[in-house]
């Protein structure tokens, strides 16, 4: 029988996914520092929901449960979604989003390896369209909030929606920098004056920019570990910087700087953790470049002209559709063949 090779030196799917989770940890720590411990509750809720949903679906589909639960791909989806939605959203929001991501976007398409769309982004898009008010209600960074909610208060708010007696909702929420920028621009303010608002930091939003830097750190770890190739993050960040740079140069009063775009919203999370999902992304090196650049351009256009403050989720879903086309037309030259 010819069943060579007999040896292998591959990390298991589990170990790859665990490294991705590990790479998210700095971002989560920064998140807790900026927005408080509530995110830990959201992450836990998402993880439990994802694993239960995954196990139930695997059972229903007559697939072995244990090997697929321990590949940890569902946990990544859960964490990404938890990090993408507002941290003090009611508990059922993350549960609904995670259920949709795992049950519909992943398992109904055939489970690990077969989902054409990024499950976390599908979950996010469904929540954004269904519950726009909840999805845009972000807490203010703790450093800025007039009233700081403690961990216990946050937990109570997530599960019951009840704030401590002396606290008003407006006191703990705030517009996100991208949201604020968008609304203020429609009021004919220019970028320079808008950015004088206290919610802005040196690069992006105050606090948010630290989370973005932590994601960048985790992403570099993934690149160093050869879990992700340089193509996707470089093309995404490069294209985002380029397109925002062009608009900014043309009209700096109306368009924010490239640095602001790189460190605002979901840019860094997208560059290193979202578009790097191998299942729903392209496989060829060139395809990766086009894919990531496409996501960046669409996300920017949504930010600049669309109806939502950030456009990463829709951009990723749209580019997911293009993946078969990209793969087909970016086949590298095979050894010994003319191009």
């Amino acid at each position: 029988m010819n069943r060579s090779p007999y040896i292998s030196e591959a990390p298991s799917v589990s170990s790859i996914m665990l490294k991705v989770l590990l790479a998210l940890v700095p971002g989560i720590i920064a998140y807790v520092w900026v927005f408080g411990g509530g995110i830990l509750v959201t992450i836990t809720l998402a993880t439990v929901t994802a694993l239960l949903a995954e196990a139930t679906m695997l059972k229903l589909r007559n697939r072995p449960v244990q090997p697929f639960l321990t590949d940890y791909s569902a946990v990544i989806t859960a964490w990404l979604l938890a990090l993408a939605i507002p941290p003090l959203a009611p508990w059922w929001l993350i549960v609904v989003g995670t259920l949709f991501a795992i049950v519909v976007a992943k398992q109904l398409y055939g489970g690990l390896g077969y989902n054409p769309f990024n499950p976390a982004m599908i979950g996010y898009a469904v929540l954004l369209i269904s519950f726009p008010a909840l999805m845009t209600k972000w807490p203010a960074a703790l450093q800025l909030a007039q009233t700081k909610l403690g961990f216990a208060d946050q937990i109570q708010f997530i599960f019951s929606g009840v704030l401590p007696q002396d606290v008003k909702l407006d006191a703990v929420t705030s517009a996100t920098p991208l949201d604020y920028l968008k609304t203020q621009l429609t009021l004919k303010h220019d970028v320079a004056s808008i950015r004088e608002a206290p919610i802005f930091g040196a690069l992006g939003g105050k606090g948010g920019e630290y989370i973005a830097m932590a994601y960048l750190l985790g992403g570099l770890y993934l690149w160093q570990q050869k879990i992700i190739s340089w193509h996707l993050p470089t093309a995404f960040l490069g294209a985002l910087a380029l397109i925002s740079g062009v608009f900014w140069v043309i009209n700096p009063a109306h368009f924010a700087s490239p640095l602001f775009h790189l460190f605002s919203g979901a840019s860094m999370l997208c560059a290193f953790f979202i578009i790097t999902d191998p299942v729903s992304g392209p496989t060829t090196p060139k395809g990766k470049l086009y894919f990531a650049a496409g996501v960046a351009v669409i996300a920017y256009l949504i930010r600049a002209y669309g109806g939502y403050p950030d456009g990463v989720a829709f951009a990723v879903i749209f580019m997911n559709i293009c993946v078969p086309l990209l793969d087909m037309h970016t086949q590298p030259r095979v050894f010994g063949h003319e191009k």
Partner: peptide, 13 residues
């Protein structure tokens, strides 16, 4: 070990 689905990581490529 038992084969898992392809996750299109393209390490093979």
């Amino acid at each position: 070990p038992p084969a898992m689905p392809c996750i299109r990581c393209a390490r093979c490529a």
